[in-house]
Write a protein that binds this DNA or RNA. Structure first.
Lengths: 197, 197
DNA sequence: CGTGTATGAATGAACG
DNA sequence: CGTTCATTCATACACG
């Protein structure tokens, strides 16, 4: 019956700076690790880094449809699902002040993304629309209006917005990665599989 | 970037869940990336490029939860669970012709509900959304209902699990990431570059 | 302890 | 462009 009392009474679930620092450190380490791995490989082997048997290992583990993007077998998929790479690219573009999805740009992006999976211009368009709409769903401070530049002026140009402290958080907010993103260069590595075999 | 706690909120320098999620995402990507790199290497080279930090792909993932290493029993990790009280209130409001979840109303409701347990506007919003969707799905079941829960519309009940294995499911799983040990024994890995030759 | 079900949450797509 | 709908996913919870 009373299963409600187990909930914490705190209003906002947050992370302390220390914890955040830890995460950052981890990421940094990973970044270095990846870098080292590539370097390492190149150092001791002239073989082009590629994949090949990768997916044949017991239970494909990652990046599947990227390779077989054109696979229209299970086309029953109505809803397009971006691959992580596509997502990364999109996010990247989004962050690059390209808050202005030029009609022309869309095509470019679509082209780019099509390399990593099936995609349509419409989807790209939708994505940007959604992205923008959802980030804007930020909760304005309670006190007074502060309707200064609620528009698409210079939204978070200096440094991502952070500290939504307060409580309740926002509605549909999702953005701000506050540190160098990897860019997912893995694709380049995987790409090599075209040369082998 | 030094913004004092002029906000007057409870916490000063903390991270919201969303931000944390972002970090996790990044880490997850890196983790996968590293994994792939190692595997790739091993695939085409017999050189012992071990893999340590991360798990070896094959199904299992990493260790559960790491962020709260300090044993801060914060139960409200994800998925908010409405207390019976909250539920009652919500249902009540829902029935009151509130088929129109007023945006402004949400805040009020959230306020109200926060008195009975932790709640966020987002959750309230979600609740209404889900509620509506759910009812709609049950409606078309009219005619020959007969309380039959067996026939049902077979609306993708529990089978649409779909090809998570061979699909992009793996990558998309970073939702609730959990990375390798926080300590990162990558030194071993990095060290190798000195041993190998 | 493993399996099935209910439901909160995320998000692509559509509507006005 | 902002809001809403529909679909999917993952987790909490119940059953055996």
């Amino acid at each position: 019956m009373e299963q409600e009392s187990l909930n914490g009474t705190f209003d906002d679930r947050v992370m302390t700076e220390e914890q955040m620092e830890a995460l950052r450190k981890q990421i940094a380490i990973y970044a270095v690790l990846c870098d080292q791995l590539v370097f390492l490989h190149n150092s001791l082997s002239s073989v082009p880094l590629l994949s090949s048997g990768m997916n044949s290992m017991g239970g494909g583990y990652f990046d599947p449809m990227v390779a077989s993007s054109s696979a229209h077998g299970m086309s029953t998929r109505h809803r397009w699902t971006p691959t992580s790479m596509q997502l990364q690219i999109l996010e990247n573009i989004y962050k690059e002040g390209s808050g202005t999805p030029n009609p022309r740009r869309i095509k470019e992006i679509t082209m780019e993304l099509s390399e990593h999976g099936e995609i349509t211009e419409k989807s790209v368009y939708n994505w940007f629309q959604n992205r923008r709409a959802r980030s804007k769903r930020k909760q304005p401070q309670t006190t007074t209006i502060t309707s200064g530049q609620a528009d698409d002026a210079a939204v978070t140009t200096t440094d991502e917005r952070e500290s939504c402290g307060g409580d309740s958080g926002a509605f549909e907010s999702y953005e701000h990665i506050l540190f160098p993103s990897p860019d997912l260069g893995i694709e380049h590595l995987l790409n090599r599989d075209k040369f082998i075999d």
